[in-house]
């Protein structure tokens, strides 16, 4: 699904990620944990195609050079990023945005566009799953939403697009226990042998609900340790201080 080799990322000549390697196979769920400033959000931004970074190394997504694709091309090929701070779009309603997004992806994959009635039926169904009320769908994207509502809205987009590779950047931050479960349930409902996830988080608590296959520790721009769910428990117990033995 995703094969990253020796990825180096700099911002204004300062290297943030120093030769990262990561291989994700279809169906796998990988958690990336790390302290503040370890490069987690930089990795998310680079994967989703945000400008402003100097990048070297290699990242293949479904066999294609991911780094050469525009953000919309990545999304159309099945890469989805749930952002840590989703932007507000005043004047753009959730339904019109979601429909435009869905149809762009469908069109790029030579599939029939979804008509208004089918779309509304589907979006209401998915919203219900996330315990999102209908009036929420007609509000402007993220405008005036609470932190938790923004994150649930990201999940709604993920459920609608059903992407192949899902990157969740600290989706658990700012969520109460109930909202956390809802987010976890939506991720679990999408898990399949063909679909993969990268869950980026500071804390182990989300991973109690979404059991990852692998856990990686990102520390000062490098994956310094990899393991299974037990590694997340260890991090929760020890914190990130013990990682200071590793080279920065």
């Amino acid at each position: 699904m995703l094969d990253i080799k020796n990825l180096k990322v700099s911002v204004e000549e300062k290297e943030i990620i120093h030769g990262l390697n990561l291989n994700i196979k279809p169906g796998e769920v990988h958690a990336i944990m790390g302290p503040n400033g370890s490069g987690k959000s930089t990795l998310t931004n680079v994967l989703s195609g945000k400008e402003g970074y100097t990048i070297s190394g290699d990242a293949k997504f479904l066999g294609e050079n991911l780094l050469e694709l525009a953000p919309e091309e990545r999304a159309r090929k099945g890469l989805f990023t749930a952002f840590q701070y989703p932007v507000e779009l005043p004047g753009v309603s959730n339904v019109s945005f979601l429909k435009a997004s869905m149809n762009s992806v469908l069109q790029a994959n030579n599939k029939d566009l979804i008509d208004a009635a089918d779309f509304l039926h589907l979006v209401k169904l998915k919203a219900k799953k996330l315990q999102i009320s209908e009036d929420f769908l007609y509000r402007n994207v993220n405008e005036g939403f609470s932190g938790g509502e923004k994150k649930r809205n990201e999940m709604l987009q993920m459920l609608m697009l059903e992407p192949k590779l899902n990157v969740l950047d600290e989706t658990d931050s700012g969520l109460d226990i109930d909202a956390l479960k809802i987010v976890a349930n939506s991720v679990n409902s999408l898990r399949s042998n063909e679909r993969s996830f990268i869950i980026i988080t500071h804390y182990q608590r989300l991973l109690d609900y979404i059991k990852p296959d692998f856990v990686h520790v990102l520390y000062y721009g490098k994956i310094v340790k990899s393991g299974t769910y037990e590694l997340a428990l260890e991090l929760e117990e020890k914190g990130y201080e013990w990682l200071s033995n590793y080279d920065k």
Binding site: G49, A70, R76, P86, V87, G91, V92, A100, S101
Partner: peptide, 22 residues
């Protein structure tokens, strides 16, 4: 906002049009 729309599969031209219309 443009990047957000692009990251949801919406092309840059269409994304600009959406923001202008909004």
């Amino acid at each position: 906002a443009l990047f957000f729309l692009q990251a949801r599969g919406i092309g840059i031209k269409e994304a600009k049009k959406m923001l202008i219309t909004s």
